[in-house]
Design a protein around this nucleic acid. Structure first.
Lengths: 218, 218
DNA sequence: TATAATATCCTTCAATTGGGGGATTGTCCT
DNA sequence: AGGACAATCCCCCAATTGAAGGATATTATA
């Protein structure tokens, strides 16, 4: 449901003049869209954005000077309400991740059709996100890698003792010291630790500590 | 690029016998796939999975007893290497999101064509993800929510090598393995680790890992 | 009452780690 | 040219850890 009685104002940052022309043509040739500014670098981003007052920014990643990802971070700090749609030829996990961290609202490839591109602009303008299918797939794997382990509260069925000792392990206290601290035999502490390893499916203290901290078990 | 000389072992959890038959036919009738188990509930999931030893599980959400999402969580805890492909008639964002949090590797609708279903199975088997486009939106907003506060406060002046090795330590990899991984002598890795300990003012791997994760140094 | 789970203690052996030392090469900066 | 530092390699020794056994007492639960 696109708002038809109001044009979406789009600013383009893109250092290739041919691409730039193409974008401007597509935008100004389509009902409901207007290209209010086109810039070949991000060096004057602040001024450019104030002048062009965009709802959505089409941002190239590969630019000389301030690159698109860095610019995204700066712009989002200064103009949080402006939506940013990243465009690039690369579908690189690291770049996608960085862009998402900087607050990008979408990530589309440069071979995206004009129709899809306009859809994406409209989607982000309306508070949605826009990703090409292959990028979306990468986003989900990033989700698994970074978010899922944080929000997922998995219950590993640790006993009170095991939790207590795992907690002390995450403080970096070696097992002999833990034993002294909680008045147990060194052997017993080790047994509990081994039991924790089994329940957590790990094989060392560093792994257990990493898992405990990442998954907020302690 | 599907591995053709090795069948993908698939177990199906589905309480509708007609659907179940359909899945089994599709799987066993397709080159490279084999249905190694079909179960009408998740009440015996542990035993069922041990018996059928699947690479991929086709998991129905709507089941009596233990539902598919809950089962996904349980299974992923016990058999983290098994890939789980959720299937449902509902395209419910919350359900999709929950499933992803539990570690599901994909989410497909029941009206998906057999060809697409097999593709999805093969995708998740190969470490990919398979899901409907609508999931991306939720995933991204969570990304922003959790990534935003990830800001490093203190700079311990670690060198690139030191950061690299600290990063591997936080994955729980022991030093001999790290050395192999990055093609360095075991001694050199240990030297870098020692140097990290000095800079972080810690005295063990667990301490270093805890500090690195807590202060988001990696 | 039997069984399971928890908690406690122990031994042995091999692998890994922590701390100390020393050494060379190359780079960057003054 | 000299100094600081990063990166690489090595040795030794003691402490810690991981894996695999075996053992007993208590408690809860079926």
């Amino acid at each position: 449901m696109v708002n038809d009685n109001q044009e979406i104002r789009v600013a383009v940052f893109e250092d290739n003049p041919i691409m730039m022309d193409a974008y401007r043509s597509i935008l100004n040739g389509s009902h409901g869209y207007r290209c209010t500014g086109s810039f070949t670098s991000c060096n004057n981003w602040k001024n450019d954005i104030e002048k062009s007052a965009p709802d959505v920014i089409l941002m190239d990643i590969e630019m000389t000077g301030i690159n698109g990802i860095k610019a995204t971070g700066l712009i989002k700090q200064e103009f949080p309400e402006v939506k940013i749609l990243i465009q690039t030829v690369f579908e690189d996990d690291d770049k996608i991740f960085e862009a998402l961290c900087k607050g990008a609202n979408g990530y589309i490839l440069k071979n995206t059709s004009p129709v899809k591109m306009l859809e994406a602009v409209s989607d982000v303008k309306n508070g949605g996100v826009a990703f090409t299918p292959t990028v979306a797939s990468k986003v989900v794997s990033l989700f698994h890698q970074f978010i899922a382990p944080m929000v997922t509260v998995v219950d590993y069925q640790l006993t009170a003792r095991e939790k207590e000792i795992l907690q002390l392990l995450t403080e970096g206290i070696p097992m002999p010291r833990i034993a002294e601290r909680i008045f147990l035999s060194y052997h017993t502490v080790r047994d509990h630790v081994k039991s924790v390893y089994q329940k957590l499916h790990v094989a060392s203290a560093t792994e257990a500590v990493a898992k405990a901290l990442r998954e907020r078990l302690v």
